[in-house]
Write a protein that binds this DNA or RNA. Structure first.
Lengths: 144, 144
DNA sequence: ATAATATACTACTAATATAGTAGGAATACT
DNA sequence: AGTATTCCTACTATATTAGTAGTATATTAT
């Protein structure tokens, strides 16, 4: 039940943008370097995030990417959904007709509970929350 | 973030055994037929469940599989773990040294919370709980 | 004993998804 | 014009999953 690198990299990339909101567009090159991700691969992830409406691009020199809306309006569950696909542990939860036993299937109920638990965590966090956590951490480390 | 059929089939198979505890060994053939799973594939899943210690086998004619311990002593989280592998959303949660940034990584914290949420659901259920749910459901359907 | 029935074991295969890589086109700034 | 950047499409390598195939071994029933 591992996350794909697509999701892990994508979340880290959009968090870079979220932590950089006021400083103009940020280039793929920069993000890729800071996060140790292949430039070409990240390029594709940014396309996903863009077409999902979380970020927008500025082409040409001095271009790059910026958040399309404030970081506190982007829930992690939405980003996750765009990158990893719907948090669906099993097909029959999206589409009941995919299994004739769905209606009275006990394991289906279990996977539904698992799914709700995951979604509940992800829905409770916005990008801004995570940026704030990072800042708290930095502030703390200065004291040491 | 889909579950593998390995896990889905495996859980359904062991639930068949759990619902059949007092009726002697149950054959792969029977389970495969009732659950619509390939006999040969299920054979492999039973091997996994057996070497994890949840079930034991009886060879030869009239043989089959039975639970190795009472259904209320088998937690779903353990079965899940044997089939799907550890509920680890990301490598660095199992092995901190796999990423040099692990110590102050915010996304790692997020995935840890997701993981805890999943585990908490699975640990709260035993096979017996699920068997009971099935029975409740059947009892209910008789009333209709 | 022998035949029938079941698991045990090992190896192979097909299909799919993931994680990239590669190359050039389009756009915008200087 | 030249440079820097995103945009688009296609390819490739690797791993995993899901399943198939065949034979060996153990146990029961006749």
């Amino acid at each position: 039940m591992k996350l794909s690198t697509r999701t892990r990299y994508g979340v880290r990339a959009i968090l870079e943008l979220a932590g950089n909101q006021d400083k103009g567009p940020m280039q793929i090159k920069t993000i890729a370097h800071r996060q140790d991700i292949s430039v070409k691969y990240l390029e594709q992830l940014m396309t996903i995030l863009k077409s999902a409406g979380f970020i927008r691009s500025v082409r040409g020199a001095k271009g790059g990417y910026i958040l399309a809306k404030p970081a506190n309006q982007i829930k992690l569950s939405d980003v996750f959904n765009a990158l990893e696909g719907p948090v669906t542990t099993v097909e029959c939860l999206e589409n009941e007709s995919s299994c004739k036993r769905a209606a009275d299937c006990v394991t289906r109920q279990v996977w539904a509970e698992v799914q709700r638990a995951i979604e509940s965590v992800l829905q409770s966090m916005t990008l801004q929350d995570l940026v704030d956590r990072t800042k708290d951490k930095k502030a703390l480390s200065y004291q040491i």
